[in-house]
Structure formats: structure tokens, C-alpha cells
């Protein structure tokens, strides 16, 4: 069996998403392509030979040798401060992947799709939205995006423009924009009921975010009658650095 190879990626461009999160646009010679929802392993090696790895979700649809990762800086993290503050265009990174064959959406899917993201959990869901666009798919998508405040939105410009067949609902947990109808608060049954799909439509559900968020949303989906096997989850712990 062929081993997943380490590739040397070059940072082509940096896009700031929020004051603490940035998208790294990487060129990876020999990249085999990926499915929306997959992730990569990043390996950093210090001059004394010390080496450490982390996993990051891919934010982009497959596009030749170009891969976007969006990295949230974790305050006391070891790797994310390096990736979000130190790394400059032209720098190189070791990357292995793509990894994960479960939390993926394929453009030939025809069932409606419900995406529920909490915080940086939006990243693999954005790859699915982009893969749908890229494929010209008309599969109906609904996105519920839970985050603390408007300033923490990733991909704000891209999601502001209407995309045919994609409904986007923001669920703010701490601070809402002026005149916003929904009071600030955590995701509720009413939110998923209003912004999601009825269980009879048999949607594919992708839920990604911190553990508590994923537990809450998947319990709500089960209570609404969605089939457990149709609910795919990916959890980000508070660690991950």
C-alpha cells in the first residue's frame, strides 16, 4: 500500500479572515486533490530537530495544486501562532493528506444538505459550499453558522453575496448587529427547525464545531427525527494549538 506522502508546500498568499484567523493559500507540488470536508496534517520542524504536527481542515474546493487552510490562532497554542503570525509568503510547510473519508460531501450528492458550523467549524463546510459552486451543483444547501459576534465571521464577503440554492443563517451567541431579530444566544431547536430541513427531506447533515456545540446540534437533529446515520460530525476540542 502506498504511504501518504509528505509534500513541501509554499505559502503563496495570506488572507486575513478576522483579527485572529487567517487563510493560508498554499501551492503544493504533487498534491493529489481532495474532497470537500477533508483535512491535512501540517508538520513543523525546529532547527534542533524538534518536530510537531497538527491537523487543519481544508477550506477550498479541489483546485490543482492550490489548497487553502484557515487557521484560528489559539492564544497559548504552539503551532497556530506560528502559522498565523510568523509564516510569510514564500515560506515552506510540510503537508500530508488529504485525510478523512467520512466527513465529506461529494458533488454528485443529490440529497439536500444541512451544514451547521460553530466558530472555526465553518472551515470544512465552506469547502463543501465552494465544491458545490465549482461543480455547478444545484443541490440545495442550508448553512447555520453559529459564532460569538459579527466580527468573527470567516469568509464574510463571499457569504454576503447571494449564492443560488444556498441559504445562510447566522446565529450570534454574544453580540448581534443593530436591529437583528434573533437575540444573542446559543443554538436552539427553533433555530435548527427554521434554518434547517424537515427530516422527511432526508438531508445529509454535517455538523462541525466545538464538542458542546456538536453534541447540542446532533441531539437536536436526532430529536427532530433525522436519522443518526445521516448526521456526520467533526469536533474541535479547545486544544489543538
Amino acid at each position: 500500500m502506498r504511504r501518504l506522502a509528505w509534500h513541501v508546500a509554499k505559502l503563496a498568499e495570506i488572507r486575513d479572515e478576522t483579527p485572529t484567523a487567517r487563510t493560508l493559500v498554499l501551492d503544493i507540488p504533487g498534491w493529489p486533490g481532495h474532497l470537500a470536508g477533508q483535512h491535512v496534517d501540517v508538520r513543523l520542524t525546529a532547527e534542533d530537530g524538534y518536530s510537531t504536527q497538527r491537523s487543519y481542515s481544508i477550506a477550498s474546493a479541489a483546485d490543482g495544486e492550490r489548497v487553502d487552510l484557515t487557521v484560528q490562532r489559539v492564544a497559548d497554542g504552539e503551532v497556530s501562532p506560528y502559522l498565523t503570525e510568523e509564516l510569510r509568503p514564500g515560506d515552506e510547510l510540510e503537508i500530508r493528506g488529504p485525510v478523512g473519508g467520512w466527513f465529506v460531501w461529494r458533488p454528485d450528492g443529490t440529497r439536500p444538505v444541512l451544514l451547521v458550523g460553530g466558530g472555526s467549524g465553518i472551515v470544512p463546510l465552506m469547502a463543501m459550499i465552494r465544491a458545490r459552486e465549482q461543480a455547478g451543483s444545484r443541490t440545495p444547501f442550508r448553512l447555520l453558522y453559529s459564532l460569538r459576534e459579527p466580527g468573527e465571521r470567516y469568509y464574510a464577503e463571499e457569504l454576503r453575496k447571494p449564492i443560488s440554492g444556498l441559504d445562510v443563517t447566522y446565529l450570534y451567541t454574544r453580540v448581534v448587529p443593530d436591529g437583528w431579530a434573533r437575540p444573542a444566544g446559543r443554538v436552539t431547536v427553533a433555530d435548527v427547525n427554521t434554518g434547517g430541513w424537515p427530516a422527511e427531506f432526508r438531508p445529509e447533515c454535517f455538523v462541525c464545531g466545538p464538542t458542546g456545540f456538536v453534541e447540542t446540534v446532533s441531539d437536536i437533529l436526532l430529536a427532530m427525527g433525522h436519522d443518526a446515520t445521516a448526521i456526520k460530525t467533526e469536533r474541535f476540542g479547545p486544544t489543538g494549538g
Binding site: Q53, L222, A228, T229, T233
Partner: peptide, 19 residues
């Protein structure tokens, strides 16, 4: 082990809803 880092909390990873 190679490539691992130390945590002090207990992250949760699972592929679907908690039964």
C-alpha cells in the same frame, strides 16, 4: 510517540451523534 503533542484536557472526537 512521534508527531504527538501533550494535552491536559480530554478532547472528544467522534463521527456522529452520541448514542
Amino acid at each position: 510517540p512521534p508527531g504527538q503533542y501533550l494535552v491536559h484536557d480530554f478532547p472528544v472526537l467522534s463521527a456522529g451523534p452520541t448514542p
